[in-house]
Each structure stands twice: as C-alpha cells, then as structure tokens.
Design a protein around this nucleic acid. Structure first.
Lengths: 189, 189
DNA sequence: GACGTATGATTTGGGTCCAAACCAGAAGGC
DNA sequence: GCCTTCTGGTTTGGACCCAAATCATACGTC
C-alpha cells in the first residue's frame, strides 16, 4: 500500500528537508491526495470501462459533455471538458473518424463549429454511462454518503477558489515579470 | 463559475438522459470533482510557480520524489510519481539535459539505474518547494483545517480502495474477454 | 464598400503519456 | 560453461496536451 504510507512518510521527510521551514503539511496533503486520487481513478476507469471500447479518458469526457449538453459550440465543450481548444480539435478528429461525433457549421456565424453525437455515439453513451457510474461507485465504495458529500463539497470549494481568485493570485505572485514562454510550444517566427 | 453550477446541472441532465436508470449521483459527483479539482490545481501551479522555472508538472513531481527520497531506482521513482517507466525515461532525459538530475548505474546490479539530484537540482528544490506549498495553501484557502483532513482522508480511502481491490474488480468486470490493445501504442511486429 | 479589430477554430512545435515490443543483465538449472 | 527464464530500463507508435502562431469570419468605423 504505497498510497497512505508513502505520502505521510514523504510529508515528514519534506519537512525535515526544509529544516523546520513553516511547511503546511495538511494543505500539502490535500493537494497531493487530490492528484493521486485523480490519476488512480482515471487509470482504473480507463482499464475497466474505457479500454473495452477503445476510448481514452479525454475522448470519453468530450463525448460525455456533448451527450449531456447536446449540440454545442466547440469552445464550450473545451471549457467543460477542461482541455484547450487546440487539443479538442485533435480529439474531435479521432472521434469523428470513429463515427461517434459530427461537426456542423453554425447557421449564422461562420466562425463557429457545432458538435453533436451521431446515432452510434448516442447508443454508445447510453450503454457506457451506467457502466461508468458502476465503477465510480466502486472506487468510492469505502466512503459513506456523508463522506461523499463532504469530499465533493470540499473539492468544489477548491475549484471555486482558483476560478475566482486564481488569476489575481498569479499576477500577484509573478509580478510583472514577463516570463519566458514555456520551452515546449511554438516559437516565434 | 462553471464549476459548481455546471456539474450539478449536468448530474440532473445525465439522470434525465437515462430515463430514471439508477444512477448514483453522489458517487458521480465525487469522481467528477476529483478530476476537476486535480486539473484546476495543476493548471494553477503550472502557471504560477512552475512556469517561471520552465518545469512541467510531471517534471516537478519527479524532481520532488528524488529530492524527498534521495538517490532512488527508476522503477520506484516511476511508481511514486504515478507515471509509467517509459514516460520516466523521457522526463529524466529532459531533466538531465537541464542539469537538475543525474543517472548512475547500480554498483552490483547492472540492470538498475539510480537517480539523484545534482547540486543545482537540490538548490532549485530548496527554493521551489516553499513557493509550491504557498500555492497549495492558496488553493485550499477556503477549507478549514478540519475540512482539509476530511478531504485528504476521503481521497486516501479512494486510492486505497482501488489499490487493494482494483485488480480483482477489473478482472471481474472484464471477464476473460481478451480485449484488443488500445488503438494508441505499439503494434505487433 | 474598404479597413482595422475582435473572436473563433485550426495548425504547429515541443513535450508528455501509455502499453507493448525490445534489449540487456541476473539467476538458476544442467 | 551454456541455456532458459526473469526482471528492469529503453524505444516505439499513436494519442494527448498546451500555448503561440495562423487562418478565417464577423463587426465595427470611416
């Protein structure tokens, strides 16, 4: 069980490393566990439900968003799915090749592209979603209903905090240090 | 604030979609929020602390693991960092080029590779870790200490559940249906 | 109408990411 | 020694992922 043991162990080691600097371990533990839980859960869902239908996590999320919200503009889908517009273009391309999603141009605004599920996509989601929810229930099986509400609520507050104050915070932390572009990504012409 | 609103909204739409199938919304909400929180937090940390030193999230995690645990075999680092061995090879390559990490061969077992931080890597982490923890505190600012413990504990239980029972569950769900390899990934020779 | 400017989607470049295939050293059996 | 089998790192192929650059359409103003 590396999960529990190693993280708390690591927390102590980290504190020791800093020689008594005021590290807030409880805050560190929240973030570490959010990330660990996310990748563990994702891995499990990919290897149980999604593997069988050859869908990546991201592809499924995009499918899910379009399924739930119905025909939508790509920028909204990217926003909801939590990926960039550029990534969405690629994911939609593969979903289109598989015949699960279709693109349509907006009737009045030629810049927009609308996404919707094909009949096959609709049928797939109808079948996949309950299976997905089964696994969601499995991974949270050791939590009571009250635990679930508490965890979900706490996480929502984290998301809200960053969404509401993150931008300001980043400007605050970075100052006006016009930082270099990340090393990955397109270079200036 | 798409976070709060859209997810709960989406839950209702999803239930409607299934026409009253027994979807467990509270479980769905936990998983959805775990994932949403993870990517939100990751994005914030990448764009505040990590951007300035041109490190990706994964690169930082790897650095962190080696920093905390000291010289370690690559398989342990991959395990702790939550990435595959293959991915680690690539990440270490870029970290090595940046002069933050060094590779060494095991004295007695020629198969093993040991990773450790260079002096520069050590200095970087010394500086980066407190800044990182600052942002961890920022994103969890709307949670009380008790909330933090509750959330972290709940997430730990999720991770534990999958680590302990996930393998069996997957075999259970998939049966012995020898499923096709995922479409991405290397083909047979 | 012609000409900026603003707003969307797509392409591009570099870097993850995984799983399967590969390769190399270790450990036993003979 | 030699020949399996096992174990651990690396390579490979396809898909993701972001941000900046680019392409394309809308919406002004003149």
């Amino acid at each position: 069980m590396p999960g529990q043991r190693s993280i708390t162990e690591a927390e102590k080691l980290a504190e020791a490393k800093l020689g008594g600097s005021p590290i807030r371990r409880d805050r560190m533990a929240v973030v570490a566990n959010i990330y660990r839980a996310a990748s563990t859960v994702r891995q499990h869902l990919e290897n149980s439900v999604l593997r069988g239908v050859d869908l990546s996590w991201t592809a499924f999320v995009v499918l899910w968003v379009v399924w739930i919200w119905g025909e939508s503009e790509t920028r909204h889908v990217a926003e909801e799915a939590g990926i960039s517009k550029g990534t969405l273009t690629g994911v939609v391309r593969t979903l289109e090749k598989r015949g699960l999603v279709q693109r349509a141009s907006h009737p009045t605004d030629g810049r927009l592209v609308l996404l919707s599920l094909t009949d096959e996509g609709e049928k797939l989601m109808q079948r996949l979603f309950p299976a997905f929810n089964e696994e969601e229930s499995f991974v949270t099986d050791k939590l009571s209903d009250a635990d679930c509400r508490a965890v979900a609520d706490g996480l929502r507050r984290v998301v809200l905090q960053v969404e509401q104050n993150g931008e300001e915070r980043r400007q605050d932390v970075l100052g006006d240090a016009t930082l270099a572009p990340r090393s990955s990504g397109r270079r200036k012409a």
